[in-house]
Amino acid sequence: MPALRFEGYVIVSGDGMLANAQNVMPDELKFEGDKRFFTAALDRAALIVHGRNSHEDQPNSPKRKRIILTRRVASTEPDPSNPKALLWNPAGIAFEQASERIGVTAGTIAIIGGPAVFDMFMDRYDAFWLSVAVNVRLPGGEPCFPGVGPRTPQQVLRSHGLKPGEAQMLDPADGVSVTPWRRG
């Protein structure tokens, strides 16, 4: 078993968007069942990885170690606003080195976005947890992955060697489910 396990997490609209046209996750994409699922997953993770515009905004957020992708640093630097966070420029240093610098050499790495961050790890995911709110549409929104628009999120995941498992309903009244996509 590898020392680091990579898992992605996102909720998308029925048309594959993770944010609206203003690049904001709208209330229409927030559901209690998905929130509970996501919170529990992040509570189990050794490290959270996301871009500058992504965050989970939860009570336990300040307690979680995280790496924030940015081009504003050469390789890594402590985040001046969060003692549990490390700023990381992938062009300056490998992920494993950044992870080591924040003190995480084993465990689950939770990748929570945005699209470029998801794409960076696409061929490394052990699992990707795709939550879908089938009844929500976000015309002109931000696609969850590069290539979504002409393709669905599911087609993008499949093209990277991930296969769907059994979907689990998170919010049945609203038609929100999560499907684990696993490597081979």
Rank of each mutant, 00 (worst) to 15 (best):
V178A: 07
D126M: 03
V178C: 03
L162S: 05
P62N: 09
P172C: 10
G8A: 06
L157H: 01
L18R: 15
F118H: 15
I109K: 06
I48T: 05
N20M: 12
F37T: 04
G165I: 12
S99I: 05
S54G: 02
A173N: 05
F128S: 02
L130Q: 00
N23Y: 10
A85L: 12
A91G: 02
N53W: 01
A167S: 15
Q155C: 11
A21N: 09
E77F: 00
G165W: 13
R124G: 02
K84L: 10
A45K: 10
D174M: 09
G33H: 03
A173H: 06
F128K: 00
K35L: 11
A106S: 15
P180M: 05
Q22K: 13
R64E: 02
P26V: 14
L157W: 12
P150C: 07
R158Q: 14
G149T: 12
M17S: 13
T76A: 02
R64A: 06
A85C: 10
Y125A: 08
A91M: 11
E7S: 07
P26M: 11
V24T: 15
R44T: 08
G92R: 11
A85T: 11
L170A: 09
S177P: 00
N53L: 08
N60Y: 10
A94T: 04
N82M: 09
S99L: 07
A98S: 07
K163V: 12
A19W: 07
L162F: 05
V176Q: 08
L4G: 06
S99N: 04
D27Q: 15
M122E: 13
A98Q: 05
